[in-house]
Design a protein around this nucleic acid. Structure first.
Lengths: 340, 340
DNA sequence: ACTGGCACTCTATTAGCCGGAGTGCCAGCA
DNA sequence: TGCTGGCACTCCGGCTAATAGAGTGCCAGT
């Protein structure tokens, strides 16, 4: 074998063994477990080079080697054949998702499924409002001066919001408002709505102007500004899997990070269509998650993306398996959404 | 002081010190920190009795004493004066909750507030459907054979559900259905709806019978059977506060339990109005939570209860403070709900 | 009924001592 | 030039022994 190729083969072997055993791996053990066809001494030389290049390191002199983030990166980029899902996993996905009944249900099932299959922490983003279109807007009177605004999107999300009106409002008037906003907004991409909402107000005769202005501001808030993203999370218990070894002692910071929606969104946001992204170690720019990796993928009907999903685990994770699972689940969810 | 009273006083002192320091407390330290007016030897005698009675125990011979679950129970039942909230806490509640904009918002803010104030894991149950009344039902056509059913309750919850119709359905028909279900169900307690839904089907002429049957079954499912409860959770990072000391080494089982909605509901369910319940150690019947205590309270407008909220922490927790906080927050949320 | 004194027990910490795993280097060999 | 076996070296992890300290239980005295 070409010496350069062998060097990479050694790296692969180190990663695989370390992921499995969670212990620094030495030259002897390597040649024993993988038929590399060379002696430990040769492997040692290769290791020295790999260490030189920053792909592995030793926790202390005369211990085995451990992959660095750069090592994992190289492994993922050049040494990973996507392994196909096992039939068992495929069945698990089917079985888990079948009978999902609405969006909430789909999201919850998905996040649990991901956590279970990968044995890691799973995150699923609800379809992003900014990538959805309005299907219908409903106004329900709550009291004489209050309405409940309900928006249904083509991705199945339902958002509600209380609207405080400037004064008492009659049922007929509500009706009128409802008609107008739907006329204008139904079918429109949410991203395009702000200007439309603006027009809506302008087109109003003075009698209804006040009410419409009120409604408009809430609409804008709901549609664009506030908390447009929602998330589901599962499998935090999996963080304790590797004992104290992963996440160097404290998973405190990790749990803290997981409670911040903003952080999670950053982790699984901005994805390319049809690809699975891997962030290793501090490639994710978040201090608390220095020793975590994130595998994420966008999902949506066809090749579009309406939201992201992914899993988070120790840098020492089974990348090929995790990548395959995340990709498969993302695709499955996309197909499911396409059906509706 | 009456010797019997002093014995209790000693127990209180032990609990307080242990909660604070997290270390077994000895006779010497006790008399130093609390002016008990007697010598360590006397305290030792009291301790021996308390241990005899099962309120405290020593981790090993010649270590200090630690309260048992029974000890905490006695402490909570007989030795706790509810301490009023500090003005700072009061302000924190106000500041945190002000500007809450809809139910989701209220619940999320509440759960974070609780987690922050008590520095423990907080759980808030959404207003239970079974205790709510229907405010309005909406039917939105999604495709020719599909409707989205949206239900709004008087507690502010909005539930949606997809309805698969037996055949194509015209807009006018949808309209008709919408009218009928609202006529029959709006304003009704959800608990009373099943029989009403039944009637609804029976009253239908054969033309609409099929559609209505379909709708009815989904209604029943949504309203009564499926997943009627929702929860919000926050502050899991606080579990790591006490280091490895609380939750005897592994918080794995605790995290697992926290992922089970059913379990959480059990913990904060079945509450009496206007009381705060404390479950200490294995009083909650859940194996994984043997070393956890739960302080919970019902909330709702006035003296009614529409849902529960609470916090979960190590048995070694500041009971008086936690109880006060949980109670205050529950009351605050109730008032907030009453306003809407 | 309380107290001071005292002997006893048990833990947690520290120091010191191997054994073993793994390395780096070097000289020899294809 | 590239691979191999051999060898000395390093460092960690685990074991034991010794020690200091905290806390108790009991008893005799007030």
């Amino acid at each position: 074998m070409n010496p350069d190729d062998r060097k990479l083969e050694v790296l692969r072997a180190i990663v695989e063994d370390y992921v499995e055993t969670q212990e620094p791996v030495g030259s002897k053990a390597l040649v024993d477990r993988h038929k590399l066809g060379v002696s430990p001494a040769t492997v040692r030389n290769d290791m020295a080079v790999l260490e030189e290049e920053g792909y592995i390191r030793q926790p202390h002199t005369s211990a085995g080697r451990v992959p660095t983030d750069a090592g994992y990166r190289l492994f993922v980029d050049r040494l990973t054949k996507i392994k196909p899902l096992s039939p068992a996993e495929r069945r698990a996905i089917e079985r888990f998702m079948i009978g999902a009944v609405d969006l909430d249900d789909v999201v919850h099932r998905t996040v649990r499924l991901l956590a279970q299959l990968t044995r890691q922490v799973a995150v699923v983003q609800y379809p992003s409002l900014s990538r959805s279109a309005v299907r219908h807007l409903e106004l329900v009177p709550i009291s004489t001066t209050r309405l409940m605004l309900v928006m249904i999107t083509d991705t199945g999300r339902v958002e509600q919001r209380l609207v405080e009106m400037p004064g008492p409002i009659a049922d007929g008037e509500v009706w009128e408002l409802r008609l107008r906003v739907n006329e204008k907004l139904a079918g429109q991409k949410l991203a395009d709505t702000p200007s439309l909402v603006q027009k809506l107000v302008e087109e109003c005769d003075t009698g209804r102007r006040a009410a419409m202005t009120c409604l408009a501001s809430v609409l804008l808030e709901t549609l664009v500004e506030r908390s447009e993203e929602r998330l589901a999370l599962a499998g935090t218990a999996n963080l304790t899997r590797g004992g104290v070894l992963d996440f160097q002692g404290t998973l405190r910071p990790v749990l803290e990070a997981l409670e911040e929606e903003v952080i999670l969104l950053k982790l699984i946001g901005d994805l390319e269509p049809r690809t699975t992204r891997v962030l290793i170690g501090d490639e994710n720019q978040i201090d608390n998650l220095r020793s975590a990796s994130v595998v994420s993928s966008g999902y949506g009907p066809g090749t579009t993306i309406v939201g992201g999903l992914g899993v988070l685990g120790p840098t020492r994770m089974d990348y090929p398996g995790t990548i395959a699972t995340v990709r498969a689940v993302a695709r499955y969810v996309g197909d499911l959404l396409a059906q509706n």
